[in-house]
Design a protein around this nucleic acid. Structure first.
Length: 519
RNA sequence: GCCCCCAUCGUCUAGCGGUCCAGGACGCCGCCCUUUCAAGGCGGUAGCACGGGUUCGAACCCCGUUGGGGGCACCA
């Protein structure tokens, strides 16, 4: 269905610029697209992280490729099993299924880095043996001292001082009890790539020092294990956050070395996705309440609604359209059309998009989705009684178009499932002031002896009594009644609500409202 | 300090040299509909950061400035 093959040639039409000088050291792997999402299981799941997952997933699905999920749990101090579980749960909730990864398996496992140390050790040994990497004994203090002695800023970092140590020098350091780190020898050419979202990016030769692959204690580091795993897992397209852009030249160099020793088949394409920011233009931090996906999930965002909004952060489906299904996203997604500028997460717009999806839901699906919210608020039993189910079924279509998120149902429909409403003070202030008593009295009188308790009969009786009888505008006539009955200024349509509520409870509430009314 | 990225309404974006006195969406405002609110319909508000080039022609290409962001670890 999404049989576009891996046709990237056309995707580059707008980003590729002529590159006459720098040579392009990378050859993208041939064959179908393989993308990956590789978070560390630390702390909460952040909407920006999910946007990255979404784009990788959408790119794989659009091209008929493979989406790999890998867990980067090499930091035992910060990683947690709980966070790991949560990550899987979030992806599943959003419908981002993975073809290879945890709990699914695949030919390139294991998919948790904590289970792959032997692999890294072996690759590191090959890199050392082939001369692409070397042992380095300098301490940070020694590097800084040399920089200062040369009149340079210590921020420049390691100075490639240990590149050609003799065996005797190494032995001497070892004799001092030093454990060497393993560093990659950086090439002396410019490091250039054609970024899928930004076009050509270039780092000048010599601007990136030889970096550490493996610590003195033997622990492999992220800049090493990440490309190694990508290479071993056959990843062709790396879509990741803009924050990783400055580490790309190092990865390019690593890939060249890995390709040379037969570990990699080439260098993947890179696409650096713009930041998702919060208020102001600060980077969305995990502490920012708008960043936590759980908040949206608990409020009752629909997975499709959130996916739709997340996709809008840096991408657009068409000039005059921004509501679409996940299937439509997959059909249309094109990484090279992702915008390079940072996008602010706008809760209001996210809500508007979600509300549109909510309204578009078939009533049965809406009912199924909303019931758990009412149950956990204690308004209905789980499962609902026959009577509750009947009420729900009647009110669902009327409630649906008045809600933004599923949890809105608790406030909107609560009055139907309790004996006494709690009247919202602001609503009382607005509608139960001067003149409300007269309205409530007239409504009570009209409804008290109504022969038939139906929506139509209630409507006729109330209009007669309030609009014609009291000569009030509908606006003034029904406001107090609505607040007395539902407790709020916003509710499902009034007559239907009253019918569902029943005569007894309706009259009781009019009386209670009368007690509060000041005039 | 050095390196890199980014720059269209308040916000997210469309724009790929002429079809743009810049289109859509959210928000906001107004009107209509109406049984309050919402939804829906209609209308309005508001933007190419600045300066130089290139070109017959620039939101779009180039350079610079300014502004914003990020990175410079034996974290990920």
């Amino acid at each position: 269905m999404h049989d576009r093959g891996a046709g990237h040639a056309d995707q580059h039409r707008r980003r590729r610029r002529p590159d006459l000088h720098g040579r392009r050291p990378m050859t993208a792997p041939a064959g179908p697209v393989r993308t990956r999402f590789c978070p560390s299981p630390t702390g909460l799941v952040h909407v920006g992280l999910l946007r990255t997952a979404l784009f990788n997933w959408a790119h794989a699905r659009h091209t008929g490729g493979t989406f790999v999920f890998r867990i980067e749990d090499t930091d035992a101090a910060r990683d947690s099993e709980e966070s790991y579980r949560h990550l899987l749960d979030c992806l599943r909730w959003l419908g981002l299924d993975w073809d290879e990864g945890p709990e699914v398996g695949g030919p390139h496992g294991p998919y948790r880095q904590s289970e792959r140390y032997d692999v890294y050790r072996e690759v590191a040994a090959k890199l050392l043996a082939s001369g692409h990497a070397y042992e380095s004994f300098s301490t940070n203090e020694e590097v800084d001292a040399r920089r200062r002695a040369a009149g340079q800023d210590t921020k420049l970092g390691y100075d490639n001082h240990d590149r050609s140590l003799t065996d005797a020098q190494k032995a001497a350091f070892r004799a001092e009890g030093r454990d060497p780190v393993l560093r990659l020898r950086m090439p002396d050419s410019d490091l250039v790539w054609d970024d899928l979202v930004r076009g050509e990016v270039r780092f000048a030769a010599g601007s990136v020092p030889d970096f550490v692959l493996v610590r003195g204690n033997g622990a492999p580091l992220y800049p090493f294990v990440n490309p190694v795993d990508d290479a071993l897992m056959g990843i062709t397209d790396v879509l990741r956050g803009e924050d990783l852009l400055p580490s790309t030249p190092r990865q390019l160099a690593l890939y060249a070395a890995l390709t040379d020793i037969g570990v990699a088949q080439g260098t993947p394409r890179f696409g650096h996705l713009p930041y998702v920011t919060g208020e102001g233009s600060k980077k969305l931090s995990k502490r920012d309440p708008t960043s936590n996906v759980d908040v949206y999930r608990e409020r009752g965002f629909l997975p499709e609604g959130l996916v739709n909004y997340l996709a809008l952060l840096g991408w657009s489906i068409a000039e005059d359209r921004d509501v679409f299904s996940t299937a439509e996203l997959v059909e249309a997604f094109d990484v090279t059309r992702v915008s390079a500028n940072p996008a602010r997460f706008d809760v209001k717009k996210a809500e508007a998009i979600n509300a549109t999806h909510l309204r578009a839901l078939p009533v049965e699906e809406f009912l199924a989705a909303v019931t758990p919210y009412l149950a956990s608020a204690g308004l209905v039993t789980d499962p609902p009684t026959a009577e509750q189910a009947a009420t729900l079924e009647a009110i669902a279509p009327l409630a649906q178009e008045r809600m933004i998120v599923l949890s809105d149902a608790v406030g909107l429909l609560g009055f139907l499932f309790t004996e006494d409403v709690e009247i919202d003070p602001a609503a009382a202030e607005k509608q139960l002031g001067a003149g409300a008593g007269e309205v409530l009295d007239a409504a009570t009188a009209a409804l008290h002896a109504l022969p038939e308790w139906t929506t139509a009969a209630i409507e006729t009786a109330l209009k007669e009594a309030l609009v014609e009888g009291l000569g009030r505008k509908p606006r003034q006539a029904f406001g107090p009644v609505r607040v007395a009955v539902s407790g709020r200024t916003v509710s499902p349509p009034l007559y239907e609500s009253m019918e569902l509520l029943g005569r007894e409870r309706t009259l009781a509430r009019l009386a209670a409202g009368r007690g509060i009314a000041t005039g």
